[in-house]
Design a protein around this nucleic acid. Structure first.
Length: 542
DNA sequence: AGGACTAAACAAG
DNA sequence: CTTGTTTAGTCCT
């Protein structure tokens, strides 16, 4: 509640896309891969206003079931609503709510609020009395569906943030058990798993422990990489047994900024969002776009992304090995990535990341790229707070651009305390300035991992910075993913790192046929529109 | 059978 | 009390 107030604001805007009442034949269901940016149409409807749907129908009142379900069976497509409030399921409503938020994340209370204000049916039900039932359902849905992930919200002491799972667990209900068998993944998993604190008792039974081999994870967008099974597991992992996946994930990293959010969320964020990409997009549009994009999130995105990538960057795709990355760029990253996972994961993938990142940036920034999507920068959550500190130089290296970025970005944004040691001073480094971050040398260093690399690090940092720009979210570049928990134990991580790196390098680089690293070009080109102020700060962990 | 909604028991903070 | 997780029952497709 407390936050409610603030929350409200965030969610508030218009949001409701439109519950397609009768007007539209429910052509678009969420899951669908997004239509192609209907540029114009979207807004037209004035969706904003309405959510009402069903005008008349709204009444359904009380026992939802009756009205909605029973009677109406008939028409689904035609027009009747499945539920008292319309055709959307709770899960869909929640998704919309989350998407509508600038940050793409909301607390439970905010979600409630969104419902109340956006969905007519719930309008009157905001009160405590009436609310019980549907709120319970909301909560239930959040926990149940893998499409929602919970991110710990340190800041306020409030409840966790709920976000959309980029992966989209859509269909899947949430894999309840995790299979942790993998080495790498397992550790990752654990990390995030944070050992659930609870429940040994009851039925938790066997599987919880980890065994179940089967990979139940849903599907990745890119599904692809066959080899990536492991990886995929990683993902799954996050929804571990006890705590739902999401929860686990969130375990520690939190996006944070709550406070900040509260402060400026409303105002700042929106503007920031597309700043780099398409500056002109009006907020409204933006939202719509976002919504649309949101759809993408769920979808594999591959299509879109791939396109982009292909266009601008050639090599990137090769990361197949890490499916994780594939989802890239888009919003997802943003969402998710922000804080949650980045770092470490990245590191693992570092090899790839390096290469890809730059391109990505371009892609993102490039106007050409299709939808303005979310290049967005979320306000970033500073995650990695402590972690950051702890990281050794090596780590930093690995993290390379991304990590750096993330940090930087966070700093930029005014993040306040949390972790911020890294405050970016706002230095202004122009993109062009950036030296080729990925120079062979760097690479080398990376490989070796040992070098102190301060210099390198710095470079990396710079890299990132431009991208992020102002508010930056780490994500942008992202492509990468972001997924793993930073928190992982560094130790473990470190240990493996070496191995992994080699492995990665070997396999990826070597194998890949032509991996050409182009270190140079990328950054050098000045093309990035946005003004960036990069930061050069030195946050090196002393 | 599977999806979705509801109710409710529990655990934590 | 709120937030979350789970389980169970019912209805619908």
């Amino acid at each position: 509640m407390a936050e409610a107030g603030g929350a409200a604001a965030a969610a508030a805007p218009d949001i409701d896309p439109d519950f397609e009442p009768q007007s539209r034949p429910r052509s678009c269901t969420w899951p669908l891969p997004r239509p192609e940016l209907p540029a114009a149409p979207a807004e037209a409807g004035g969706a904003a206003g309405a959510v009402d749907e069903g005008a008349g129908g709204a009444a359904v009142g009380p026992g939802r079931a009756e009205g909605a379900r029973a009677g109406g069976a008939a028409a689904r497509k035609g027009g009747s609503r499945r539920n008292a409030w319309g055709n959307q399921s709770y899960a869909e409503l929640i998704s919309q709510a989350i998407e509508s938020a600038p940050e793409k994340r909301l607390t439970l209370a905010q979600i409630y609020e969104w419902m109340v204000r956006s969905v007519p049916y719930f309008k009157d039900k905001g009160d405590s009395n009436s609310s019980a039932g549907w709120k319970n359902s909301i909560r239930h849905n959040l926990s149940l569906h893998s499409k929602f992930i919970k991110v710990h919200n340190e800041a306020t002491g409030k409840s966790s943030w709920w976000m959309l799972n980029p992966e989209g667990g859509k269909s899947g209900k949430a894999p309840r058990r995790r299979a942790a068998s993998m080495d790498n993944s397992s550790k990752l998993a654990k990390v995030r798993g944070k050992a659930s604190k609870k429940k040994p008792p009851l039925q938790s039974a066997p599987e919880s422990t980890a065994d179940s081999p089967s990979s139940q994870f849903p599907k990745w967008p890119g599904s692809p990489s066959s080899r990536s099974n492991e990886d995929s597991d990683v993902w799954n992992t996050f929804r571990p047994r006890t705590s739902s996946n999401a929860s686990t994930v969130s375990a520690k990293l939190s996006p944070i900024l709550t406070e900040q959010d509260d402060l400026h969320d409303e105002e700042l964020l929106p503007s920031l969002v597309y700043s780099s990409a398409s500056s002109n997009v009006p907020p409204t549009v933006t939202e719509e776009l976002e919504l649309i994009d949101g759809l993408n999130l769920m979808s594999p995105s591959s299509s879109v992304l791939s396109t982009q990538q292909s266009v601008s960057s050639g090599q990137i795709q090769r990361d197949s090995s890490f499916s994780l990355q594939s989802p890239n760029a888009a919003g997802q990253t943003t969402t998710f990535g922000n804080s949650l996972f980045n770092p470490i994961d990245i590191s693992l993938q570092s090899s790839i990341s390096h290469f890809s990142a730059p391109h990505t940036l371009e892609v993102l920034l490039t106007p050409a790229s299709p939808p303005p999507r979310d290049v967005m920068l979320t306000p970033v959550d500073p995650v990695l707070p402590q972690t950051g500190n702890r990281m050794s130089s090596r780590t930093l290296l690995l993290l390379g651009g991304q990590a750096a970025q993330s940090k930087m970005s966070s700093g930029n944004s005014r993040g306040k305390s949390t972790e911020q040691q890294v405050e970016p001073v706002g230095a202004s480094v122009l993109p062009s300035t950036l030296p080729i971050v990925t120079s062979p040398q760097n690479t080398a260093s990376i490989i070796s991992l040992k070098a102190p690399v301060s210099a390198t690090t710095a470079q990396a940092v710079q890299l990132g910075s431009p991208l992020l720009l102002s508010s930056a979210s780490p994500a942008p570049l992202g492509l990468n993913q972001d997924r793993l928990p930073i928190d992982l134990d560094l130790d473990m991580y470190m240990e493996n790192l070496e191995c992994d790196m080699d492995y990665i390098i070997n396999s990826e680089l070597m194998d890949e046929e032509g991996l050409d690293f182009n270190f140079e070009p990328i950054l050098s080109t000045p093309s990035y529109p946005s003004t960036s102020q990069a930061s050069n700060h030195t946050w090196v962990p002393s």
